[in-house]
């Protein structure tokens, strides 16, 4: 399995954020997208997730399956997609069911260290805990490509190393991780793609 981008370009608000970009990420590989503010890191991730249209080029997951690329990615954006009125467990169960996973939500909560408070309303969680709950969704619903936009934002050191472990397991299982970040997110062998370097 391989994610291939072929001379892709993207325009937002009349401004070209990136153009002529080509790369490929194979199963088990991680790609760190770096670059200054406004270099188009978030736009690239959103384009891969199908949330932003490309103005040129193609993006594909090879070999072609019957499912579209958007259905095979997990998108972890700046917002956590957590509903404060639902309990921690209900939030995760909803996303797992919606994203077509049959994974164990209890295991996923344990992986991010929220298993003891699955019954609490998500409104009582701190920002870092909400982030962890958001990450739990990647574990519970199995999808090959993870698109992580600043995944370590508001995570403390133990939670960051938990996340590094989760990403490692995903890569060992033949997954793909593409992360946009300024910080070191603890991936051992990651290739790097610098946007806006030219």
């Amino acid at each position: 399995m391989k994610l291939v981008a072929d001379t892709i370009a993207c325009t937002r608000g009349g401004r070209e954020v990136f153009a002529g970009l080509s790369f490929s990420v194979a199963a088990g590989e991680a790609l760190l997208v770096t670059g200054r503010n406004g270099a188009g890191k978030s736009s690239l991730l959103r384009a891969i997730a199908g949330l932003v249209r490309l103005t040129a080029g193609t993006l594909a997951l090879e070999p072609d399956g019957d499912r579209s690329l958007a259905e095979q990615v997990h998108y972890l954006g700046h917002h956590d997609a957590v509903k404060p009125a639902l309990s921690v467990g209900e939030n995760l169960q909803f996303w797992t069911a919606y994203l077509g996973g049959n994974g164990d939500t209890d295991d996923a909560l344990a992986a991010v260290g929220l298993d003891a408070i699955g019954h609490l309303p998500a409104g009582t969680l701190s920002a870092g805990q909400k982030r962890r709950l958001s990450i739990a969704r990647l574990v519970a619903a199995k999808r090959p490509v993870w698109l992580l936009d600043e995944p370590t934002a508001s995570l403390d050191a133990p939670a960051q190393s938990d996340l590094a472990g989760i990403m490692d397991r995903h890569l060992h299982g033949g997954g793909i991780v593409i992360a946009a970040t300024h910080a070191d997110i603890g991936l051992k062998s990651a290739r790097s793609l610098r946007l806006g370097a030219a």
């Binding site: 958007a70 954006g77 509903k83 996303w95 994203l99």
Partner: peptide
Amino acid sequence: FEDGSLDVLLTGSL
């Protein structure tokens, strides 16, 4: 839209 759920809803198979 505000809490990011809409983005994730868009990546669903539904």
